[in-house]
């Protein structure tokens, strides 16, 4: 049984001019201790998927259909209180911008102990000892002294380390990391990714790593899901997706990444832009931009089908 199992997750935003479908029958699963990378352009629904899993969709967004199971137990239809107990305790979350995710008015120690004591029975002294341990583990030097410092007294990279400690301190089985390095200096990004990878490996924590950085995915993830306009278009082992992408969109995505091995004059790019939610084309959502489009793509929407070592939602693989 997978740790997290998402089946046909559909998220809708009712608006005055009709209902917008931001996620359309998204299905994937994550095994214990596995790292699943989720890539795609801005607005493809990556972060929304994470928010839907922990029940923090912003209104008026709502889960219209589908199921989310954690350890076999359904969590998409839970009442607010049981869902709150899952957040932090069984599913941790790491946000994008460490400069704004920490409350400026509380010490980092208080934010850590507060999180742990919400979910676990700990005395103040135990919680403080554990908090220092976590700061130490995420690489904050002189943790015992720094625990009483305020967020503004840390650099951006250090704050993201604190955020990681906050996400992991109640020992969740799954962490949803929503673009954890996007807001950081390039020189810090690798450190933070390595830290996240090592810590989750040591604790056996599974990770859903949302990013648009294929380099991070290549180095970190076990499997990768590619999202486009609210759907997963390809999912499979990271090496297969990178080397032999089965979906033309993934192919275009990979070709647009510069490589040191092959010198090219001009990087390839995918023509056009991702459709807006209120103007999703009929048939395959990618067909207006697809270099290999044919008649069937205009009419029917493809589901995920086995395509070599991965699964792809593309009619090219319908008979394969």
């Amino acid at each position: 049984m997978p740790l997290l199992d998402v089946r046909d997750l559909t998220v809708e935003f009712p608006t005055r001019r009709g209902t917008l479908r931001a996620l359309d029958r998204v299905s994937f699963s994550i095994e214990s201790g596995e790292i699943l990378g989720v890539v795609g352009e801005s607005g493809a629904g990556k972060s929304l998927t994470g928010a839907a899993i922990v029940g923090l969709l912003e209104r008026p967004g709502r889960i219209a259909s589908g199921e989310i199971r954690l350890d076999g137990q359904r969590i998409d239809n839970l009442a607010p209180e049981p869902l709150r107990r899952i957040r932090g305790r069984r599913i941790g979350t790491i946000f994008q911008d460490p400069l704004t995710t920490l409350n400026p008015l509380y010490t980092i120690g208080r934010q850590l102990t507060e999180t742990m004591q919400t979910h676990m029975r700990l005395t103040d002294a135990e919680a403080r000892r554990k908090a220092i341990g976590w700061l130490d583990r995420v690489g904050i030097p002189a943790a015992a002294q720094r625990i009483d410092a305020y967020p503004h007294e840390f650099s951006g990279g250090q704050r993201q380390r604190v955020v990681i400690a906050l996400a992991l301190c109640a020992e969740p089985a799954l962490v949803i990391a929503d673009e954890p390095t996007t807001a950081l200096d390039v020189s810090i990004q690798a450190q933070i990714i390595t830290l996240l990878k090592n810590l989750t490996r040591d604790h056996g924590t599974a990770v859903m790593l949302v990013t648009h950085d294929m380099g991070v995915i290549a180095e970190t993830a076990d499997r990768v899901a590619v999202m486009y306009a609210g759907r997963i278009v390809e999912i499979g082992p990271v090496a297969a997706v990178i080397r032999q992408p089965a979906h033309p969109y993934t192919d275009g995505l990979m070709a647009s990444i510069p490589s040191l091995e092959h010198r090219v004059d001009r990087l390839r790019q995918i023509d056009g832009a991702m459709p807006r939610l209120d103007a999703i084309p009929a048939g395959c959502r990618f067909h207006p931009r697809c270099p290999r489009v044919f008649a069937r793509c205009h009419k029917e929407q493809p589901e995920l089908l086995p395509a070599g070592a991965t699964n792809a939602a593309c009619w090219l693989h319908a008979n394969g």
Partner: peptide
């Protein structure tokens, strides 16, 4: 930081 506080299950 309020969204993060919610995500921590406070």
């Amino acid at each position: 930081y309020i969204k993060f506080a919610r995500a921590r299950g406070l």
